[in-house]
Design a binder for these strands. Structure first.
Ligand SMILES: [Mn+2]
Ligand SMILES: [Mn+2]
Ligand SMILES: [Zn+2]
Ligand SMILES: [Zn+2]
Lengths: 145, 145
DNA sequence: ATTGCAGATGCGAAAATTTGCAACTACGAC
DNA sequence: GTCGTAGTTGCAAATTTTCGCATCTGCAAT
């Protein structure tokens, strides 16, 4: 039982097609520990099957993101990166705009916001792997000198 | 006194260079009411000065975003768009992934989150024009049939 | 007013991302 | 298992976005 089997089940249940390309992109991302660029995903998929096209990888990461099984990370001046959304390890990030430090934010920390948006606007939001920008503790100090 | 004068003051105070290109991009965005694509910004800037290059517009919107005087809107399958960040009208968005409906979310609604991130992680976040994804009230109903 | 220079611009070229389309295939119905 | 078809893929081409670099300029210091 591979580590992405839960994600595969989720795709099956939502009735979308499970092609070999999609399975391979999912596998590449789930078998990695960090955030991978599209190019990196492509390289790893090609190890498994050399004729998978880069454009397919682009289409597939978009698809998997919309299905909620992978998360996206966009930082200014860096290529977009993707990461597994593992059950029980859902998280977000805050990045320091001065030094680039990045921390994980527990998914639960956004629960209050999620409830507010439901109560006040009737929207049920999908908060998956958000990236917020700010100042880390160290840079806040430096700045105030 | 133009409507972007407050933003200009903000740039002056942070000690960055105020070039004509930057002023024109700012003007184009502030004199518009909606979210403009980079291409649209470029067209409007060229009305004022025909030799401003598209790459300059790209660099400038990035710059102005980082300065916090314009906000970014990224929706899957659509070009990135930019909008004025007007004092007293700061807001975020929630977009329905089913029907595309987009609503404004008051900036204050994220105050609790902002405080939590400070208290728990020591980060001071800049929450400027976020875009969250979810299901609007109507689509939540349709779905549950 | 003049000077000096870090940082911004225009332009061409490169790189990244998207798109159109004919061929292919996953998967539900039989 | 075979069939039918809506949805997916590979490929090439278009489009969007970024980058390198020589030149130019905003602005602080004098
Ligand atoms: Mn992550
Ligand atoms: Mn807006
Ligand atoms: Zn920092
Ligand atoms: Zn909707």
């Amino acid at each position: 039982m591979s580590c992405e089997s839960r994600a595969i089940d989720q795709l099956r249940e939502s009735g979308v097609r499970l092609t070999p390309q999609r399975a391979m992109v999912l596998e590449a991302i789930y078998h990695s520990d960090g955030h991978l660029s599209v190019e990196e995903v492509h390289e790893r998929v090609q190890q498994l099957s050399p004729y998978v096209d880069l454009s397919t990888v682009y289409r597939t990461v978009m698809f998997l993101k919309q299905q909620g099984v992978i998360g996206e990370l966009r930082l200014d001046g860096q290529p977009v990166r993707y990461e597994a959304v593992r059950f029980g390890q859902e998280h977000h990030h805050v990045v320091c705009s001065s030094c680039g430090a990045m921390i994980d934010v527990a998914s639960d920390d956004l629960e209050t916001l999620s409830e507010l948006l439901d109560t006040k606007y009737g929207f049920e939001v999908n908060l998956v792997h958000l990236t917020l920008v700010g100042q880390c503790p160290a840079c806040r100090n430096d700045q105030s000198r």
